[in-house]
Design a protein around this nucleic acid. Structure first.
Length: 775
DNA sequence: CGGCCCCGCGTTTTT
DNA sequence: CGCGGGGCCG
């Protein structure tokens, strides 16, 4: 233990050692945050704190697993008894014990986003509301926000300001939808992701004895990524710690990028208000990146208001300046980035896994996939369609869900006629509505109905009954059969395997493979569980585990030597030697919508900060003058964020659109690339130069003028004519940089010929033209 | 009841 | 452009 502590810097060490009381650890990017957290917990264990009294909350399963592993390395087996996991996983575990207190049973289902939306769609339809007004995604987002802020359907309906808001938005039935949704979730014995936090709060509010039990059980609470907590999470933490006040929160306000999902940056900004006695530790030394990268990132984030004060620095190498890769089109952007990567691969002898391409939106990935493929560079895309959201996986999991919880309506609807059993949509919809009216689940509703009462055809009724019998038979085994055995039997008996095997299309084969992969996953889970608990798991245990899993937990980035492609959001917490931040254009990054409010613009800026600080050795920004979006061509000026980087840390000379750096092979470009017939790499004469665009405010954004900070790169001091010599590098205000090719006198004036990188050769008269000597 | 086509829609997403 | 949902038709 002590040799581990000796590797910490003074602030880190202090943060590790003072584990009593409240602490706020402000952890800059790359400042060894995870090390501090793991050491702190390991240190607590070394001081005799029993592991089962420690609660450590994270946002991702991955973060929790990583931390647990690292603590196990130091503290050994005892680490197993720590309560460490995501908010959702930990409190869902507690809710399983306490379910009856909030009107559920312990075998409640966890609805994922798709389940929630399907249910909402059904409700909106039944209420005969206009689906174009009550858009499922919007309705879901609004309900989610309400839950995150602990607004129950009752308080939602009775709040004047909310109903005024909804009326103004021409959605007066929001409260009714919310109430119906909540009622039907309860009837289905199901909680959505937000419910896990909402009902934990309700549990603690209505059952002080239960709160007392857990708040005394957990003598120490730690929260990672505290800047991402929402109100519901904040309150849970506050309640659990109000007695012993041993709370340690770790986070970085500069990296708060999830407010669109309800995260409240105020939670970290105002931590001292709830815990005035807290000690504050600032981890300001960045061990990840070069000075140039850290300083560039600092200069960007400095433009935001209201932050926790800190001075991040790197003691590492000065390093290369942030690079720029301008391009005329998105195709070319892809080509230049791929080209740059292969240059670096060759020059720096770096493995593929040292490179990442980060973009603002998933739609941007395609271009880079193409360009990398063309160069035979292996890549891997992270995010996107989740494994667990694939239809075939959801279908099989729905069987498992229904086996455990017969009231799980969403699972029921999904599989009652899959594989096909001749039960039609009409029958299903009819049953769903009947059940809703009786405030029952479809399952219970069917059990209590004769075919006449149900008003469905006898044949359909019989088929539904057969389905219930089959599920019942499967349920009989669920409690005693080992999970893997049961899942394979279900895959077989349900007819899913037969259905997929019959499908000989490429997609069909892929689906079958996915199901097989899931079966393998179950097997692995069983083996691990057996090892840890000394007995095989039943299906409920697998399902509990899998409902809160995402594909991010399946993937092991370290394993493959490939270039990584992902959104900036999913790159948070990761690091790469070489990082390309692409699509650096107004309306894309920052996004169009974000530019409308300064609050959202600041979040975009933090997102850019996150992106920059992923880089260890070099960050490169690319942008395209025009790109295809949604099938249409679009032109946007370079992102304001480029200009916000202190010019000392960004390499503006790399702006050059040097013809030699492009492939002359037409095969490297897609067809139609040169369709406008313009010379390849020369910008249109009428367009301002790229350098100029970087210095100029984009006219297209009306708000930009007041909203943008003043430009800093314009320390333009014209040099004396005599100081300029042939071969010198000079800068011109609008033409950018170039090399002096010739100097000659011309009737009382001096004529200078400069080869500008952006616009080519120009001859200037020193009497008029202002040139600044750069080198 | 099931398949096909057309129309509308389109930040980010740890759970 | 690429997907998903709803509507229509066989």
């Amino acid at each position: 233990m002590s040799d581990i502590l000796s590797s910490l810097n003074p602030v880190q060490l202090e943060a590790v050692e003072s584990y009593q009381g409240a602490s706020l650890i402000i952890a800059g990017a790359g400042s060894g945050k995870t090390r501090v957290l793991t050491c702190r917990i390991a240190n607590m264990l070394a001081h005799g704190v029993p592991p089962s009294t420690v609660l450590a909350l994270t946002f991702t399963n991955k973060a929790a697993a990583e931390m647990k592993e690292r603590i196990t390395d130091v503290a050994g087996e005892r680490a197993r008894y720590l309560w460490m996991g995501t908010f959702h996983a930990i409190f869902s575990r507690i809710l399983r014990y306490e379910a009856e207190n909030v009107g559920f049973t312990s075998s409640y289902t966890i609805y994922d986003t798709a389940d929630s939306r399907n249910l909402l769609r059904a409700i909106i339809k039944e209420m005969k509301l206009d689906e174009n007004v009550y858009k499922v995604n919007d309705v879901h987002a609004r309900i989610s926000m309400a839950k995150n802020n602990l607004i129950t359907p009752q308080s939602y309906a009775s709040s004047g300001s909310i109903s005024a808001n909804d009326t103004q938005a021409r959605k007066p039935h929001m409260a009714t939808i919310y109430a119906a949704y909540a009622r039907r979730c309860i009837a289905a014995n199901a909680m959505d992701f937000d419910d896990l936090l909402l009902f934990t709060n309700i549990l603690f509010r209505d059952h002080p004895d239960v709160l007392q039990k857990y708040s005394s059980k957990f003598s120490y609470v730690l929260v990672d990524e505290y800047q991402d907590t929402n109100y519901a999470q904040y309150l849970i933490v506050k309640k659990l710690t109000s007695a012993h006040r041993n709370l340690c929160v770790v986070g970085d306000d500069a990296q708060s990028i999830y407010s669109f999902r309800g995260a409240k940056i105020e939670n970290i900004l105002n931590f001292q208000r709830d815990f005035p006695e807290c000690r504050i530790f600032k981890l300001e030394q960045n061990y990840r990146s070069t000075q140039s990268i850290v300083n560039a990132a600092n200069s960007v984030i400095a433009q935001n208001s209201g932050q926790l004060k800190k001075k991040c620095f790197s003691a590492g190498e000065k390093g290369e300046k942030v690079g720029l890769l301008p391009a005329f089109t998105d195709q070319e952007e892809g080509f230049r980035v791929a080209g740059d990567i292969s240059d670096y691969l060759y020059g720096a002898q770096a493995p593929y896994s040292d490179f990442a391409i980060l973009y603002r939106t998933n739609a941007q990935s395609r271009i880079f996939e193409d360009s990398l493929r063309r160069k035979n560079i292996p890549y891997r895309i992270y995010g996107g369609q989740s494994f667990y959201q694939r239809k075939e996986i959801k279908d099989l999991l729905s069987y498992l869900r229904l086996i455990i919880n017969h009231n799980d309506n969403e699972a029921f609807k999904r599989i009652v006629n899959y594989p096909r059993r001749g039960i039609g949509d009409a029958t299903v919809a009819r049953l769903e509505e009947l059940a809703a009216q009786a405030n029952l689940s479809m399952w219970d509703c069917i059990l209590g109905l004769t075919p006449e009462q149900a008003e469905i055809r006898g044949a359909a009724y019989k088929k539904v009954s057969q389905f219930l019998l089959m599920i019942n038979a499967m349920s009989d085994n669920a409690g005693r059969q080992e999970a893997y055995e049961l899942v394979s039997a279900v895959a077989q008996q349900s007819g899913i395997l037969a259905e997929l095997r019959a499908d000989k299309t490429i997609e069909g084969i892929a689906r079958l493979e996915n199901v097989e992969e899931l079966l393998n996953g179950v097997k692995e889970f069983c083996e691990r569980y057996q090892e840890e608990n000394g007995e095989p798991p039943v299906i409920a245990q697998y399902l509990e585990n899998v409902s809160l899993l995402t594909d991010a937990d399946k993937e092991k980035p370290e394993e493959a030597n490939t270039v990584s492609l992902m959104t900036i959001h999913s790159a948070k917490g990761l690091e790469y030697a070489y990082v390309y931040i692409v699509g650096m254009e107004e309306n894309l990054f920052p996004g169009k919508l974000a530019m409308m409010s300064s609050v959202e613009l600041e979040e975009e800026r933090r997102l850019f900060y996150v992106a920059l600080t992923r880089a260890k050795v070099k960050a490169t920004l690319s942008f395209a003058q025009s790109r295809y979006r949604w099938g249409k061509q679009e032109s946007n000026p370079p992102s304001r964020f480029i200009r916000e980087i202190d010019p000392a840390y960004i390499d503006v000379t790399s702006m050059s659109l040097d013809e030699d750096s492009f492939s002359q092979d037409p095969d490297d470009y897609t067809e139609g690339y040169y369709q406008d017939g313009l010379p390849r790499f020369a910008p249109k004469a009428s367009k301002p130069s790229l350098a100029r665009q970087l210095r100029k405010l984009p006219d297209s954004t009306a708000e930009a003028k007041q909203d943008l900070p003043r430009l800093r790169p314009v320390d333009f001091v014209p040099s004396q004519a005599g100081s300029i010599t042939v071969g010198a590098l000079v800068e011109h205000k609008s033409f950018g940089r170039g090399e002096v090719l010739a100097i000659e006198s011309a009737g009382g004036d001096i004529k200078v010929t400069v080869n500008f990188k952006l616009v080519g050769k120009k001859t200037l008269l020193m009497k008029y033209a202002k040139l600044m000597l750069v080198k």
